[in-house]
Amino acid sequence: MAKESLKMLHFEKICEILNDYDYRPDKLIPILREIQEEYRYLPEEVMTFVASSLDISPARVFGVATFFEHFKLSPRGKYVIKICDGTACHVKGSMNLYNTIKEKIGLGDEEETTDDLLFTLETVSCLGACGLAPVMVINDKVYGQLTPEKTEKIIEDIIKKEKDGEEE
């Protein structure tokens, strides 16, 4: 039941966001940003819906959405893991962390997000926390001075937490 109303909320929320911006086509970017906060990405149907509501073409919305790195066009995991691969982190073995996580969460070669939509794994250029290298960020939480072992533990904890949550 909770899940169902959550989905409904999404749609209500889109309408609310559009309302807040008075259906102004020049507010497309903030509208898309807020919608992405709801869905974690921009589903095609939602972009078409936004286009119809703002009286602009779906191709224009797609153009804006693909222009900015911030907008994601494929579903994202509940936990977005960003491994810093800037120079300092790279030297300190950030790719080892990346490979550890990739194996742990069972990602294929070209994949970013797990099938159960729990994790998304990606690298970023520099998080600006070189003193803590190697660094990763999961959603908004920063983890520093990592080792593959520590990393594995963090991921295991998340998986466990999620499992327990489901059972309750």
Binding site: M47, S57, P58, R60, V61, F62, T66
Partner: peptide, 21 residues
């Protein structure tokens, strides 16, 4: 008044595409 085509992506990757490619 249709806009069936538009620019998509950015920089060296820019393409003219129909909606959602």
């Amino acid at each position: 008044g249709i806009g069936a085509l538009d620019f998509a992506y950015r920089g060296a990757k820019v393409q003219v595409l129909p909606a959602f490619g």
